[in-house]
Design a binder for these strands. Structure first.
Length: 421
DNA sequence: TACCCAATAT
DNA sequence: TATATTGGGT
């Protein structure tokens, strides 16, 4: 891959020392353009800047990824030429709920188009042909978040404590990254949010990745050491507090107490149970998506180095082809909401969830193409593959809060019954 | 101080 | 619903 074309870009960042690693290198970009050639050009440019590009030249697929795998991306660049298209509808209707900046690209430089897109969820609008420099600078939409989470994560204990105190003041906790429909207000809004969230504690979403860490820690620890503090230490997830772990442990223990309840649960709750019988907490909520837990390349050798695709294969294969099941499920259910699968690049359990949770939905109904179109095999999907390939090695900016996971988890402890209600 | 647990709040 | 917080007890 070519060396970056933007010399000294890191020093471009204000207070760049507060940004982890080599940010914005590794920025995960979902790139959609219907023109394969132009797509390739853009991809090339982005890669020149060391961004991880997942390219896509089919609208449906791009939207599918945006809807259902946005945690695999830090930012999306979507081609869109008409204001009545599905992309526009997608972004204007649920774009504000997405936690990912969406940049629109178009040949249409009309004021109407620019204005409409910008007012309906796009964070920027690039008129083709796009200058490489504009692509290089896409990380700017994440800088604020990076700064924000840097404050949150790097804080000392006192600051943390203070932050925790202040979180009980009573004002609502808002998603600092949720963009408003009217992006003309974005900067101000984001500033407000940034200010607020820097002093607030966000909810932790115990999704598959984090839960795996938790389970792995439990497994590793001696029985007498299974206390929040030790688990926290063992998990080695920065940003996570003892209280977080204590809370989760409490839930865990409760869930173990009455495993019999499992059978009484509704179908809906079954969607939270992994194939291993574990608790996946796959609710898919966006408060603190676990894609924010960026796997740092493993320094040593606790376990064999995960070479990502292999890892994925290992984890996927025993479970059969869930993609097919997933797709079949979709074909039989009218979608009504967009679930969020939060495990960074690790879609195994999300598929399990989908497989078992009959009510899990992928696309909004108006986005649902005919089943033929949607029935692509994700296992062999180069788009998914790209994202997966990068998923474990990236050092990607975290939109809300960064948690470093130093030991990619491969161990799943069976039986973490879910279902506490 | 850390822990557990139940209840309650968000 | 999931997670955080609180409060009482060990």
């Amino acid at each position: 891959m070519a060396e970056n074309g933007g010399g000294g870009r890191h020093s471009d960042l204000p207070n760049s020392n507060m940004f982890p690693g080599t940010f914005p290198e590794g920025l995960r970009v979902l790139l959609f353009d219907e023109d394969p050639q132009y797509l390739h050009v853009l991809e090339q440019h982005l890669q020149d800047f060391q961004y991880q590009v997942t390219r896509c030249d089919e609208e449906e697929r791009a939207m599918y990824l945006l809807c259902n795998h946005r945690n695999m991306f830090d930012i999306a660049i979507m081609e869109a030429n008409d204001l009545d298209g599905k992309v526009f509808r997608l972004i204007s209707e649920i774009g504000s709920e997405m936690d990912i900046p969406i940049i629109i690209t178009s040949k249409d430089g009309s004021r109407e188009s620019v204005t409409k897109w910008m007012m309906n969820g796009a964070c920027d609008y690039l008129i083709k042909p796009i200058r490489p420099e504009d692509l290089r600078l896409i990380y700017k939409y994440l800088v604020k978040k990076m700064e924000l989470m840097s404050v949150t994560v790097s804080g000392k204990a006192e600051e943390k404590a203070a932050a925790e105190k202040s979180s009980s003041v009573g004002d609502s906790i808002r998603n600092p990254n949720k963009r408003k429909g009217n992006m003309l207000q974005t900067d101000k809004e984001d500033l407000d949010h940034a200010h607020g969230s820097a002093t607030k504690k966000r909810r932790v979403v115990w999704d598959e990745c984090l839960n795996d860490k938790f389970l792995e820690a439990m497994k590793y620890l001696d029985t007498r050491d299974i206390v929040p503090k030790k688990i926290l230490e063992r998990m080695n997830v920065s940003g996570l507090t003892r209280e977080n772990v204590a809370s989760h442990l409490q839930k865990f223990r409760l869930s173990q107490k009455k495993p019999g309840d499992e059978n009484k649960k509704s179908k809906r709750n079954r969607s939270l149970i992994t194939a291993q019988g574990g608790m996946s907490s796959g609710e898919g909520n966006v408060q603190f998506p676990i894609h924010q837990i960026n796997n740092i390349p493993q320094p040593s050798s606790v376990q064999p180095q995960n070479t990502n695709l292999n890892l994925m294969t290992q984890r996927i294969s025993p479970l059969g082809n869930h993609h097919d099941n997933l797709m079949r499920t979709h074909q039989h259910h009218i979608p009504h909401q967009v679930p969020e699968f939060t495990c960074n690049g690790q879609i195994i359990n999300e598929r399990i969830v989908l497989n078992e949770g009959e009510e899990d939905i992928i696309l909004p109904s108006w986005l649902m193409p005919n089943s033929e179109q949607m029935d692509f095999n994700l296992d062999q999907d180069p788009v998914i593959e790209t994202a997966l390939r990068f998923s474990d090695i990236q050092i990607a900016p975290d939109p809300q809060q960064l948690m470093y996971v130093q030991e990619p988890s491969m161990i799943h402890i069976p039986s973490f019954p879910s279902s506490l209600t």
